[in-house]
Design a protein around this nucleic acid. Sequence first.
DNA 1: TCCTTATGTTTATTATAATACACAAATATA
DNA 2: TATATTTGTGTATTATAATAAACATAAGGA
Lengths: 87, 87
Amino acid sequence: MIDAVTIKEVKLQLGELCKQKRQSYDMSQQDLAEALKLSRYTIQKFENGKNATLDTVLKIANHFDLLGNLYQALKDLEQNNDINSLY
Amino acid sequence: MIDAVTIKEVKLQLGELCKQKRQSYDMSQQDLAEALKLSRYTIQKFENGKNATLDTVLKIANHFDLLGNLYQALKDLEQNNDINSLY
DNA sequence: TCCTTATGTTTATTATAATACACAAATATA
DNA sequence: TATATTTGTGTATTATAATAAACATAAGGA
């Protein structure tokens, strides 16, 4: 029996990923905020799993070069090929 | 030379995926809105590529059973294993 | 220890996503 | 054709994400 993943868990994981990617580029929250023309508070809240807008999430994803992969994954899903079915 | 995917394109693709999944379940925008306790206008705007909140996107993803895959993909990315590197 | 930097948190304000209507225009369905 | 259903759009209001500024608290380096 596998526990269902919750929306809250996904948001926390998104924040964790942002933090980890940001640190891997040796950037502070302030650095990332300035690079994306967002406020540090927006980054701060996102990294701690709070709600955000799609634009904010995608700006961050784009900065870490994840937009192409995301787009392709969405295309695959549309053709009823979920990620797992590719193996 | 590959054109970079834009944030706008990702939002449009997200909307398309929502529409396609919704129709595959024979649901109207109204049906989906009621199931998720969102307004039809929110679904309408999302399907047409407008900005939305993370909560809205994840509610929709959850309804179409995509949350687990998304969570795992995020976990993989955190370990520097992007989707492509799995092949 | 002092000084700098990064992060967490608050308050107030602004911008905008979400809601709740209504109504028109398509798109089926009988 | 009619009729019903779905979708697109408009307007006003509400809820909340984003901003801006300040301040506290680490945590790290000189």
